[in-house]
């Protein structure tokens, strides 16, 4: 709002400046920015304020009354075992997906980047899952991991190993979802790491070679890894944010089951808000979710400042 007001005020001084020198009045800049400013306010800033306000009320969609509850929604959350279970499951998922996708992305990037032949082939192959429609591929994965007819269990059987009911076992459900997450994210991280690798100046490797560092793994630990430091941090945080937002696979494959073992934060919030229409407590969960994402983003933007784009 203050932007629009400042704009109107500025028109006057723009005219005054126009008398002295004919540079295009900055007024035009407001016209350029206006559509975005309107959308920013209507679809983002106001909703955030509203969600914040709702989190202190007992608002339910369709209900006539609304009353102020103060921090009741938050204290209720703090003692709500369902919420905590979703929170724990989400953290578990993040703890599996982030190391898995970051390490495999790094490994693939380093190996592929050193190749003389086939670099593009590998990049395309590993990137393919990133562009695929996750929901469709998730159903494929559910089939792959199927307890009786899934090829993964066929393989385990062929190797004489025990078979698993991945989607029926509360112990295995999060790892199974994490496999899908890692499968989709590894190629994306690989491309980010590749960009970081190409930014390492070649003469550093030459200097290392002159200094007698010539084994690939020595080179990796003395030059590549330290130089990839900022990229690695960036990839870790980006992956954490992506993993924190896990929703699609849960909504389609497990619906939080079995026995709530795959309840995640966003799925719980979704059910609360859009299935049970309890807006107040869903808003409180949203605020908790936003706080976590903002902390991660803050870390990320500090890195972005250093390397605006790769």
């Amino acid at each position: 709002m203050s932007i629009a007001l400042a704009g109107a005020e500025h028109q006057g001084s723009a005219k005054r400046r126009r008398r002295l020198g004919a540079e295009i009045a900055p007024g035009i800049a407001y016209w350029f920015a206006a559509p975005s400013i309107v959308l920013l306010i209507v679809t983002l800033l106001l909703p955030i304020i509203v969600v914040f306000a709702l989190s202190f009320t007992d608002y339910e969609l369709g209900a006539l009354g609304i009353s102020f509850l103060g921090l009741d929604n938050y204290t209720a959350l703090a003692s709500d075992p369902t919420f905590w279970r979703g929170f724990r499951n989400t953290l578990y998922y993040v703890a599996l997906v982030v190391p898995g996708s970051v390490l495999s992305g790094l490994l693939l990037a380093v190996l592929v980047n050193d190749l003389i032949r086939g670099r593009r082939f590998y990049q395309i192959a590993f990137f393919l899952p990133v562009t695929s429609t996750l929901i469709a591929m998730a159903t494929v994965w559910k089939y792959l991991l199927h307890g009786r007819i899934g090829p993964v269990n066929h393989l385990l059987a062929a190797l004489g190993l025990p078979q698993f009911e991945f989607f029926g076992d509360p112990e295995l459900i999060m790892p199974a979802l994490a496999v899908i997450g890692i499968w989709q994210l590894a190629g994306f991280n690989m491309v980010l790491f590749t960009a970081g690798l190409t930014a390492i100046p070649a003469d550093l490797y030459e200097a290392a070679a002159v200094d007698g560092i010539d084994r690939p793994w020595e080179r990796f630990f003395t030059v590549t890894l330290p130089m990839l430091g900022p990229t690695t941090m960036f990839v870790i945080i980006t992956s954490s944010i992506t993993a924190f937002k896990v929703f699609d696979t849960v909504a389609v494959l497990t619906r939080g089951g079995p026995q709530g073992a795959s309840d995640v934060l966003l799925y719980t919030t979704y059910l609360e808000g859009f299935q049970y229409l309890r807006m107040g407590s869903a808003a409180a969960m949203t605020i908790v979710f936003l706080a976590i994402i903002l902390v991660l983003s803050l870390l990320q933007s500090r890195l972005l400042d250093r390397k605006v784009h790769y």
Partner: peptide, 20 residues
Amino acid sequence: GLIPQDGGSIAIDGQVVDDA
């Protein structure tokens, strides 16, 4: 006329062009 001056005046062919 690409940058506005903070003071003074420019005339081309005798015509002040500060507004142009």
